[in-house]
């Protein structure tokens, strides 16, 4: 049975920022992130998932978002189309500057750090949503942290 329309609207209002942020940090493109956010909202509406609690809903949304981002990366459309300066749509300079530093990291480190430090998922939860072992996530966190520190040091944005 599908989730009720009223409930869906409430979830979209509450969680669309999470879905959008997750997609945006992965895809590096504002309009693609919008498309993925819309797709995830529709997938939620058409799913017959029954979530036990808010945490399970949040983790499901993150998993589906990342899967759709990967699908988009793989698609012929995405490979053949070049971004046309879409990112100017993020008008907050502070946020865009931060994203530019973050995008210098490889995908796996970036997503792990974002989920851990910003969305405050546990290592086990990140392991489940990324389909990796908890040991791998532990390593990605360590290496990602170290690499980000290097990037910020080189850019003069962090003092040792």
């Amino acid at each position: 049975m599908n989730i009720g329309t009223e409930k869906i609207e409430q979830i979209i209002k509450e969680y669309s920022a999470l879905i959008f942020r997750t997609a945006y940090q992965f895809l590096k493109n504002y309009h693609d992130a919008q498309d993925v956010t819309q797709d995830v909202c529709v997938a939620l509406a058409l799913s017959d998932k029954d979530f036990e609690n808010e945490t399970k809903l949040r983790n499901w949304l993150i998993t589906v978002t990342l899967n759709k981002c990967r699908d988009l990366h793989k698609s012929a459309w995405h490979r053949k189309c070049e971004p046309l300066g879409d990112n100017i749509a993020v008008s907050e300079p502070e946020a865009y500057e931060m994203m530019e530093e973050l995008w210098k990291l490889p995908d796996n480190y970036r997503t792990t750090l974002y989920l851990y430090y910003y969305e405050e998922l546990t290592v086990d939860e990140i392991a489940a949503v990324l389909g990796k072992s908890r040991n791998t996530i532990g390593s990605w966190l360590t290496r990602g942290k170290r690499k980000l520190k290097q990037i910020l040091l080189e850019g003069g944005k962090f003092n040792a």
Partner: peptide, 11 residues
């Protein structure tokens, strides 16, 4: 703190 500006990234 580094991730704080992320709260400005939203639809």
């Amino acid at each position: 703190d580094f991730f704080e500006p992320m709260n400005k990234i939203k639809p």
